[in-house]
Design a protein around this nucleic acid. Structure first.
Lengths: 196, 196
DNA sequence: ACCTGAACACCGTTCAAGT
DNA sequence: ACCTGAACACCGTTCAAGT
């Protein structure tokens, strides 16, 4: 047994901080930088070598979140054929990610609009939303969705998915089954998006 | 001129705290209890006589917010005739309140799902949402909305309004005109809600 | 290069004490 | 009844100093 009584410390404090932060976030904790350092076994000033401040750590977490969301969305759409099934798959995947990582999602959106947010954060967010945007374009090409700027036309669908996720995370859905609500909403959106 | 050199203090610290908190919130400030007390000219422990803690003050703020939202929604619907116009009026009023009071709205929804939140907070929220719910019931009676549990059927519309407001508050609407997006979303929702 | 330890200016909450 | 002032246990951030 090597003794290693807190040697000089870590080879990878940066990722250790991010992982511990994610765990705390998932547990509903309060994400204090000092507490994070304590849990990892490092002085409270050590994180400063790796993150300019607390906000920088939060931004890194949010950026990772957008990348994972993008991956989930791409994966969900890869398994679905036809516009209706693909819209449902998108909505399900979005709501599932949002409810499984409620605190992270809040952080992702709170971070995105911060004035001094890193361009890489915004880029990661844009990449995550490429998939649903492409879905609307597809739908237009196949005659399932009314013509027009795809962002403008598809906004109602994205907003509804985001809204259902937000309402679910705030316990505003009462006794309703989340998946049933998503299905129902998607049915109505499919009708509403059609060309007239 | 009466001198009143900080007499013994205030007749109405409770409302003074709430008003100052609302101002700070609207200015994008951080809402520290000590700072609030400082601005009002009272010791940092004085608020304790009126609010059990910081969270209790936030809950009171949220409750007031739901009451004001309810008033806005009722007022908006009172001026609109016909289901389509009324749904548009609701969506506009909701999005306007949400974007005009972005920080307050966040607080309102964050407070609602807190385990120990006061029943009066939940009641105020329910009252605010009575109006849109009644609108769906009206729409069903008039043949504009598909039958079924009105909460379930109307959820897509409420979620879309909430989602658009959330996206607007997070600067996710790009160059789009907010009112144009709301109008477009409502048009699609009207189609999607119809009985088939 | 990477980390520590002390310091600074804040928090929210509690509690004896004042009027 | 209502408020004060000191105290406690925390924060985030900064910075000289250590290895």
């Amino acid at each position: 047994m090597a003794v290693t009584p807190r040697p000089y410390h870590h080879g990878n404090l940066r990722v250790a901080l991010l992982e511990q932060a994610e765990r705390t976030l998932a547990d509903g904790g309060d994400l204090s930088l000092r507490e994070l350092a304590r849990q990892i076994g490092v002085s409270h000033a050590a994180p400063r070598r790796h993150f300019a401040g607390k906000q920088a750590l939060l931004d890194a977490l949010a950026e990772d979140g957008f990348e994972r969301l993008g991956t989930e969305l791409r994966g969900a759409l890869a398994d679905a054929d036809g516009f209706d099934a693909r819209l449902l798959a998108f909505a399900r995947a979005y709501v599932q990610f949002a409810t499984e990582h409620a605190a992270l999602l809040e952080l992702m959106f709170a971070g995105k609009h911060r004035p001094g947010a890193a361009p890489s954060l915004r880029a990661a967010a844009d990449r995550a939303f490429e998939t649903p945007l492409a879905l609307i374009v597809e739908g237009q090409a196949g005659g399932d969705v009314a013509p027009g700027d795809p962002e403008r036309v598809g906004m109602v669908a994205f907003a509804a998915a985001h809204g259902i996720a937000a309402l679910a995370n705030n316990q505003m859905l009462g006794d309703f089954d989340l998946d049933d609500l998503v299905e129902n909403a998607v049915e109505r959106l499919i009708l509403g998006l059609r060309p007239r």
